[in-house]
Design a protein around this nucleic acid. Structure first.
Lengths: 189, 189
DNA sequence: TACAAAGTGTACTGCACGGTACAATGCTTT
DNA sequence: AAAGCATTGTACCGTGCAGTACACTTTGTA
C-alpha cells in the first residue's frame, strides 16, 4: 500500500480547516477520512486517541504558530510599534482577511471549551499579555495597556463573528484598521 | 398522561440554554428530552421538523427579545443616550454578565450559520443599524456612527468569547464599561 | 535478503443518533 | 357522557457515528 503522507504534521492543516468549519462535535470521522485521504487505520495510527487527539494537536499547532509569528515578535521587536503592526498583518493573513474563523474562539464558545480549557485559556492570555507589554513599551500606562490589549483581542474575535454573520470580510478588515489605530496613541486618562 | 406544559413557548428557554452550551451539532435529542422533561412524542408534536425547528424557534425568540428590549428602545428613546445606556444594561443582563454565551454568535461561527444564515445576518445587521442610528442622534458623524456601532457589537461578541475562554466574567463587564464609554463622545476625525 | 517497524485498507463492533408510529391518556366542547 | 382533538410515553427504525481488529504492504536497517 502506497504511503500517503510522510509525517503526521502533514495533515494537521486539513484537520484544522475541518474543525473550523464544523466545530468539534460536528467534525465527523468520515469527513476527516475523505478530506485527509487517509483511512481510519492511518488516522488512528497517527492519532491513537482519535478525534480528541486530533483537535489537541491542531490547537497546539495554532498556539505554536501564534507564539512564533505573533507573540514573540510583539515582545522582542526593537520598536514595539513594528511588533504591533506585524501582529495585525499576521492576524489578517492568518484569518484570511476575515474569511477564516478562529478555531480557538469557536472551541471557546460551546462545551468543547471544557475539553481543552487550558490551551484555550493560555492562548488568549498569552495574546493579551504580549500585546499589553508591547503597548506599555509604546508608552501606554499599565492600565491602559491592559485595557487596550483586551479590547483589541476581543475586537478581533468579535469582528470574525460579525464578518462571518454578514458574510462580508470587509467587516473584519475595517475593524482591524480601527483597532490598529487605537494602538497608536494611548487613550486620554 | 399528565400534561407537562401549556404552551410550546414554555420550553423555548430550556432549548436555548442547551443550544448555547452544546452548539447545534452537539445538542442531542436525548439531552433535550431529559432537560425539558418531555418525551420525543411531545417534542415532535410541538416541533414537527425536529431539532432544526427547535433551533429556529429559539433564534426567533432571541431576535424578538432584542428587537423589543434593545433595538426599539435604541430607536425610540427621546434621549439617545438613555437608549444606548439601556442597551448596555439589557445586554449585560441578557448575557448574565458574561457567564452566558451569545447563541447567535455561536451559530455564526461554524457551519450552523448556513442553516440559519438569514436570521443570523439580520440579528447583527439590526443591532449595528439601530445602534448607529442612536449614535447619529447623539451627534456622531455618519461614518463614526457606523464604525463605532460595529466596534461595539463586535466588542461585545469578542468579550463573550474572551470571558468564557478565561472563565472570568470580569473580562466581559470591564469590556462593556469601556465600550459604553466610547459611545459618549464621537472619536476625533 | 531478511526482518522489524511503520503505515494502510477493510471489515467490523456496539452504540447513540435523529426521527417515526402509534396506542394510551388527558382535556375541552357539546 | 360522548366525541374529538391535544398531548404524552414507548417501542421501534435505519443510519451514521467513533473506535477496533487485523491482515497486509511498504519502508528502513543491517
Amino acid at each position: 500500500m502506497a504511503r500517503k503522507i510522510a509525517e503526521r504534521s502533514d495533515i494537521v492543516p486539513v484537520l484544522g480547516e475541518i474543525f473550523r468549519e464544523r466545530g468539534f462535535a460536528g467534525a465527523s470521522l468520515s469527513e476527516i477520512t475523505q478530506r485527509t485521504g487517509l483511512g481510519k487505520g492511518s488516522l488512528y495510527h497517527f492519532f491513537p486517541d482519535g478525534k480528541e487527539e486530533m483537535a489537541k494537536v491542531v490547537l497546539d499547532d495554532v498556539a505554536d504558530w501564534f507564539e512564533t509569528n505573533v507573540f514573540v515578535p510583539l515582545g522582542t521587536a526593537e520598536d514595539p510599534e513594528v511588533g504591533i503592526d506585524h501582529m495585525f498583518k499576521a492576524t489578517v493573513s492568518f484569518f484570511h482577511s476575515g474569511r477564516r474563523v478562529c478555531l480557538v474562539g469557536t472551541f471557546a464558545l460551546d462545551d468543547t471549551r471544557d475539553r481543552f480549557a487550558e490551551v484555550i485559556h493560555a492562548y488568549f492570555a498569552a495574546w493579551t499579555k504580549a500585546l499589553a507589554s508591547a503597548l506599555r513599551r509604546r508608552g501606554f500606562g499599565i492600565k491602559a495597556a491592559r485595557a487596550t490589549a483586551e479590547d483589541v483581542v476581543a475586537g478581533i474575535q468579535g469582528a470574525l463573528v460579525l464578518a462571518r454573520s454578514q458574510d462580508d470580510p470587509g467587516v473584519f478588515t475595517r475593524a482591524i484598521k480601527r483597532l490598529q489605530a487605537r494602538t497608536k496613541t494611548a487613550p486620554a486618562a
